[in-house]
Computed example of a mutant assay.
Amino acid sequence: MSGHKRFWKAVSVAQENGLFEPRLDGRPIRLPQGKVLAVRSSALAEAIAGEWGQIAEGASFTPDSLPLTRMAGTMIERIAPDPQTTRDMLLGFGVDDGLCYCADGINPVAEQVFAWLSGYGIHPSVTDGLMPVVQPEGYLEAVGQLLATQGDLDLAVLGVLAQATGSLLLSLAVVGGAVSLVDAVLWANNDEKSQLATWGQDDELVRTMENREKDILDAGMFLTLGRQVSI
Rank of each mutant, 00 (worst) to 15 (best):
M89V: 02
A59L: 08
D97V: 06
G105E: 07
I216H: 10
F20W: 15
V185S: 09
L161M: 11
N211K: 13
A188Y: 10
G226Q: 03
T127S: 14
Q33L: 14
V206R: 08
S118V: 02
T62W: 14
F93H: 09
E51P: 04
E137F: 08
L225N: 06
S194D: 06
P67K: 06
E77K: 10
G129W: 07
L223E: 03
Q33H: 11
W116A: 15
D202S: 08
L217D: 00
M209A: 07
F7H: 04
K214Q: 12
L168P: 05
N189F: 02
L172W: 01
Q84I: 04
E111G: 14
I55K: 07
G121I: 02
V182S: 07
D183M: 11
G34E: 06
T62E: 14
Q228R: 11
G105Q: 01
V175R: 07
G18W: 09
G26K: 04
G226F: 12
E141F: 09
T69R: 13
G177V: 10
A188K: 02
Q150D: 00
Q84V: 12
P81F: 01
V36L: 06
A115R: 15
N107W: 11
G94H: 01
G151M: 07
E21R: 15
W8K: 06
Y139T: 01
N17H: 14
Q145H: 06
E16Q: 13
L181A: 01
H123L: 15
M1Q: 12
D97M: 02
Q33R: 15
Y120G: 01
L91S: 05
R30D: 03
V206N: 02
F114S: 00
W8A: 10
S171A: 14
T74K: 15
T149Y: 02
V39S: 02
V109T: 15
D128V: 12
E137D: 12
R212K: 12
G26W: 04
Q112P: 01
A142L: 03
T62K: 07
D97F: 03
S41W: 07
D202F: 06
L223M: 11
L158E: 00
N211F: 12
P108S: 05
G105F: 10
P63I: 06
R87H: 05
S118L: 12
A197S: 10
I79Y: 06
L155W: 01
A178L: 09
V185F: 08
T86H: 08
A14R: 14
T62V: 08
D104S: 13
R87W: 09
S118W: 06
V157L: 06
L172T: 02
L140W: 01
A110D: 00
K214H: 10
G3C: 04
G121A: 10
Q112E: 10
T165H: 06
W8Y: 08
L44E: 00
D218G: 01
S230N: 14
P22N: 09
E204G: 10
E141N: 04
I106G: 00
Q112D: 13
G58S: 03
D191T: 04
L169K: 07
T69S: 15
R40S: 15
L170N: 12
T208Q: 14
A14W: 05
S42Q: 15
G159S: 12
L225R: 09
